[in-house]
Amino acid sequence: MKAGLKKKIVKEIKVDVDKCTGCRSCELACSAFHAAPRYSSMNPSRSRIRVIMDEVRDVYVPIRAGEYTQAECNGRNIYTIAGKEYSECTFCPASCPSRDYFKEPDSGLPLKCDMCESVPPLPEPMCVQACEFDALTYEEREEEYEEEELKRDEMEIAFESLIKKYGLKQVLQTASRLSKR
């Protein structure tokens, strides 16, 4: 089956670091929205957006939590942008062992931005709503993508990984044993 082009909505938050004033309202709104029950607590250390801030070097960069990573980078870049030095970490969204950003303070489990997906949907993610200075702005745009040719069945994927781990023979034996119960 040949799939055609499909459309999807891509959600983006644009960050203008020159407009950031370091008020951290985005952090507070995020943590309140994701608290359970909702708005029950406002605690920046639980936020999925953090303003990387250095008053001495005039660095103000809001970053959103991305993927968890097990290991920190071996060697990092230092970027000079418009005469100011930034560590690579300043732009990195990873929940990573080298710093305690984007980890639940109680459990240490990684946090990840979910763009405030909720029912009913928010007009804009909370961090954007809380930003009075338009350092954060929200955009949705349509993007075309090619659908995968063949969608594999979930069970097929599961069996494949079991076979990979235990071997075909053992999986078949187990299945036959279970079927006799």
Binding site: T21, R57, Y60
Partner: peptide, 24 residues
């Protein structure tokens, strides 16, 4: 360089200045 805010405040009252030869 910019104007900055205090914690959780939607105003930016502080002017941050870089003066030649001095600390920001």
């Amino acid at each position: 360089d910019r104007q900055t805010s205090c914690y959780n405040c939607p105003k930016k009252c502080r002017n941050v200045i870089s003066w030649p030869g001095r600390k920001r």
